[in-house]
Amino acid sequence: MQKSLHLDPNKCTGCLQCEMACAWENHRSFTIAKSRIKVFTFHEPGRFVPYTCTQCDEAWCMMACPTDAIRLDPVTGAKVVLEPSCVGCKVCTIACPFGTINYVSDTGKVQKCDLCVGASGPACEKACPTGAITYVDADWTGLDKMRQWAGKTDTNPATV
């Protein structure tokens, strides 16, 4: 069963533990600017919204990559950046309509959530103290809701 991150803004307190865990997992640094998951602050309703890649079926980033640097992990369904192949052209960063694959100037490569490929589950989920981030079976996540928008603009998913 493929699993997905379920992000629940109603439980998020904006503590940024997830960003720190992600930055540490991937960069061995607590520089949260390098985190692949971001908590967006909405001042008016006073709300925190954690957001990252939904590993969408359309895989806009993977399709657009001109150097075969983004691959599908068959076990988790994650789209994973292979750093040695990434030339840093950034085409994926404009192709992803969710804004969740981004360029890192230090490395000259792009990065995105890969569900902590190779580790025992996503670091952000383990770090979240309020259950706002959970790692659940893909069918449960309400991911379908997130994907609806993508479906509206594309009736022919990349997975044929």
Binding site: A95, P97, G99, T100, N102
Partner: peptide
């Protein structure tokens, strides 16, 4: 500006 620029596509194309 490089962070989250894809969202511009999302807003425009969507």
């Amino acid at each position: 500006f490089t962070n989250h620029v894809g969202a511009l596509r999302g807003l425009i194309e969507g």
